[in-house]
Design a protein around this nucleic acid. Structure first.
Length: 305
DNA sequence: TGTCGACCTGCCATA
DNA sequence: CTGTACAGGTCGACC
C-alpha cells in the first residue's frame, strides 16, 4: 500500500497525553485498521485519516489534505487529560491504578449518525463481532472515499445511507435482530421522520436523549453513547454491563442484586458522575476498560479510599 | 415500577 | 471437539 510520506505532518502530542492504539481499540470506534508499518487508517465522516504513532507525538495525513482541525477534534485534543488525572485521583485515590494502566486513553469525537448505527449494533454483542458488523455496514451502504493511499475506504455511514439496504440483506450479513432496527431507522430517516441528529447536539441533554431514545433500537445506553462519543457530553456515563459491574463493586454493593431498570441505570450513572465530576464520561472509559480487561474488581472494593 | 422472555450469532472458556 | 455462558441492550407484555 502506498504511503503518503511526502504529506505527513508532525503533531507534538506525546503518547502520555494521547495513546492512539488504546483509544482506537477501546470499543469506541470499530472500523480503524493498522497496517504492517504500524500506521492507523480510518475515516472521520467523509475524511480519510492516516496516523502514525510515535513516543513524542504522531505523524498524520488526511484526505482531503491537511485537515488538522478534523484530527484535533476527533482525538478531543482540546481536553487536558493531565489535569483530569489530578482531579480523578483526588476524587478517588484508586483511580491512580487505572491511570497507570490506561494513560493517554481519550474519548473520541465521532459523527453522531454513524455512532448511532455502531452502538445499535453493539447491543448484547462483543467487540470483534461489532467490528465485523460495522465494517459490513459501511461496505453495504456508505460512500466509497477516493483516498489515494487506501485500497478501499468507506465514509462513516449516515441514517439515510441505511435505506440502501434491505433488512433481509443485513440479516444475511449476520446482523441478527439488529437488522430490523437499522432498516427501520433508514426508512424513517428517508421519510423525514427522524429528528435532525446533528442538530440535537445543540439541545439540552435530557431533551436530546429522549429524542434519541424514541428511535428504534435506541435505549438509555445507546443514547448515552451518542451523547458521550458524538456530542462531546463529557459528563454522560453510559452504563453497560462492565461499568455496572465496576460501579456496583466499587460504590454501590446495595445494587448488586437489582436488575438494571431505568431507575437503577440512572442511579449508577449519577453515583459515578457525582464522584468523578464533569468528565465522568471520560473516567467511565477507564472503568470500562478495567472491568472489561479483568483488572481485579475485588481489589477495588471497599470504600472510596 | 419491576420482572421476564424473546431477539441473532459467534467468541471464549471449560468439560 | 460439542456445549454453555455471555457479550458494551432493547422491546413489549404482564404484574
Amino acid at each position: 500500500m502506498p504511503e503518503p510520506s511526502h504529506r505527513l505532518r508532525w503533531a507534538p502530542i506525546p503518547a502520555t497525553s494521547l495513546n492512539i492504539e488504546l483509544s482506537l481499540t477501546s470499543g469506541q470506534v470499530f472500523r480503524w485498521t493498522r497496517n504492517a508499518g504500524g500506521a492507523w487508517l480510518g475515516a472521520v465522516g467523509d475524511i480519510g485519516a492516516y496516523i502514525v504513532p510515535a513516543e513524542r507525538g504522531f505523524w498524520w495525513a488526511t484526505y482531503p489534505p491537511d485537515r488538522w482541525n478534523v484530527v484535533e477534534a476527533f482525538f478531543s485534543l482540546q481536553v487536558d487529560v493531565e489535569s483530569l488525572y489530578r482531579e480523578w485521583v483526588r476524587s478517588d485515590r484508586r483511580f491512580a491504578e487505572l491511570i497507570d494502566l490506561f494513560r493517554g486513553l481519550r474519548i473520541l469525537r465521532q459523527p453522531p449518525e454513524s455512532a448511532l448505527c455502531s452502538f445499535i449494533c453493539s447491543s448484547c454483542n462483543n467487540v470483534p463481532r461489532i467490528s465485523g458488523m460495522v465494517g459490513s455496514l459501511a461496505r453495504l451502504v456508505a460512500r466509497q472515499l477516493a483516498v489515494p493511499w487506501f485500497e478501499e475506504l468507506r465514509a462513516d455511514p449516515t441514517l439515510v445511507d441505511l435505506a440502501r439496504v434491505q433488512e433481509r440483506a443485513l440479516r444475511d450479513a449476520g446482523f441478527g435482530y439488529r437488522a430490523r432496527y437499522l432498516a427501520q431507522l433508514g426508512r424513517l430517516a428517508c421519510s423525514g421522520l427522524t429528528p435532525d441528529i446533528e442538530g440535537l447536539e445543540r439541545f439540552g441533554w435530557s431533551e436530546a436523549r429522549a429524542a434519541l431514545m424514541a428511535l428504534p433500537g435506541v435505549g438509555a445506553k445507546v443514547a448515552d453513547c451518542v451523547g458521550l462519543f458524538a456530542y462531546g457530553r463529557h459528563d454522560v456515563v453510559p452504563v453497560d454491563t462492565h461499568v455496572r459491574r465496576y460501579v456496583v463493586a466499587r460504590f454501590r454493593p446495595d445494587l448488586a442484586t437489582r436488575s438494571l431498570t431505568p431507575r437503577v441505570y440512572d442511579a449508577l450513572a449519577a453515583e459515578f458522575r457525582g464522584i468523578m465530576g464533569p468528565y465522568a464520561g471520560w473516567a467511565q472509559q477507564y472503568a470500562y476498560m478495567a472491568a472489561r480487561s479483568g483488572v481485579a474488581i475485588a481489589s477495588l472494593q471497599g470504600g472510596t479510599g
